[in-house]
């Protein structure tokens, strides 16, 4: 665990760079984490991020399949928005814990 300043805010992050507390998240933090990964966030991205955050608050465990069936984005779209890390990268940017599902 470490403290990191992202978008001018001090947040606690894990060794992998995931936020420890999803309530410390805001849109500027998302944008800065994303730009470190070379992703420029659009409204489409935020739709997915907000969905992931909602589901995580409800206690759901996320899989690429469930996100693909959410109606928010399909699997192809998810790969397009977050290339090479559809669930990992989106979770990191959404400020939620690292995904634990194998699917």
């Amino acid at each position: 665990m470490a403290v990191k300043t992202i978008a001018g805010v001090q947040v606690n992050v894990t060794d992998d760079g995931y936020l420890e507390d999803m309530d410390q998240w805001n849109e500027d933090i998302a944008k800065e984490i994303a730009s470190e990964m070379g992703i420029e966030l659009t409204d489409e991205h935020f739709k997915v991020l907000n969905y992931l955050r909602e589901k995580t608050k409800e206690g759901a465990s996320l899989s690429i399949r469930s996100v693909g069936k959410s109606g928010v984005v399909d699997v192809k779209g998810l790969y397009k928005l977050f290339p090479k890390g559809p669930l990992k990268f989106s979770s990191k940017i959404a400020g939620i814990p690292k995904p634990t599902s194998c699917i």
């Binding site: 690429i64 090479k84 890390g85 669930l87």
Partner: peptide, 8 residues
Amino acid sequence: ANGAVMEG
């Protein structure tokens, strides 16, 4: 295979 694709 799916896990590998998801890891990029």
